[in-house]
Amino acid sequence: MNTRISVVLFFLVCFLGLLALTLGPANISVLETIKILLGKGELDSQTYIIFSLRLPRVITAILCGAILGGAGAVFQASLRNPMADPFVLGVSAGASFGVALSITLGFSAFLGLPISALLGAVCTTLLIFLIGSKHRVSQTSLLLTGVAANYILSAAMTLLMFINHQHYERILFWTLGSFSSSTWEQVFYTFVCALIFFIPLFLHHKEMDMMLLDEGSALSGGLSLRRMRLFLLLLSTFAVSTCVSFFGVIGFIGLMAPHITRLLVGPKHKKMLLPTCLFGSLLLLGSDTLSRILLPTGEMPVGVITSLLGAPLFIWMLRKGRNSYV
């Protein structure tokens, strides 16, 4: 069951990826796309569009989706809360605030946007971790902490935009998210970041299962849970903040992917981690493709589409009272 779903999802991602290559404002037919991919393109501009604009974009969307899905699973296990996700808890907002602050202060050149994003995100994660793991907190109070963190950070972002109108649009971009300016360089960095994130993640799937048990049983299992929790949380924070520093805040993928996968394969991380990542890729790639084709000549921020998909699910989960794992 597990492998079958992963295989199906993998082929779906590949199929959607190929489909996404043929879609876009520039009219390039499927046949021509295949020709170009085989190196027999006739028009230079079309070859350029496929190889330098669409392909890096498709790949970054797939990688980012996998990272966000995986990070969602980590947050949910570490905080023992199926509603947790880096976006909902304000970690993505922390990263984008870090980016905005460094743009405003003019540090973007030597500190680098990814580093400032990481600093912003780590601070938010530590705050959430302190609140979420010290003593048993209810699901609502954790979520409310996230809501508060999101409020504070978005107010701070608005303040930054207000003070510097000249950076207004560049800061606004980080709050909406877009893959429109993906380059091969970003593909490389995102890929490296994905490797750093996924290898330890897949090695520690057992510990993630243990985290879901109550504190007592986990301790009797001889596991230094608190340390493992913090390690995995920080690791996913690193991966998410890198994505944010390149492509801006993209919400709800980390919530949707693990949740839907858990409904299909159950809560065991050995079974659900890979399909979760693939599902994240599928969702984000689909959203990005939609953002490219919905407007005939311009583009829509991808964050708008993922939020339109994810927010209703979030509300549904709240109403259903999905406090525990399936």
């Binding site: 876009g24 404002p25 520039a26 501009s45 079309q46 350029y48 569009i49 604009l53 669409r54 510097n164 109108h165 000249q166 950076h167 207004y168 649009e169 429109s180 300016s181 490219r292 407007l295 005939p296 000549t297 311009g298 583009e299």
Partner: peptide, 30 residues
């Protein structure tokens, strides 16, 4: 960009049409 609307354009079309000349209006504060 005469066929496009609402001040936005796409990179793909820009590459496809590859104009002779690009007029640069400096961005705010630059």
């Amino acid at each position: 960009a005469k066929d496009a609307t609402k001040w936005t354009y796409s990179k793909e079309l820009l590459i496809e049409k590859d104009p002779d000349l690009i007029i640069i209006s400096p961005r705010w504060g630059e």
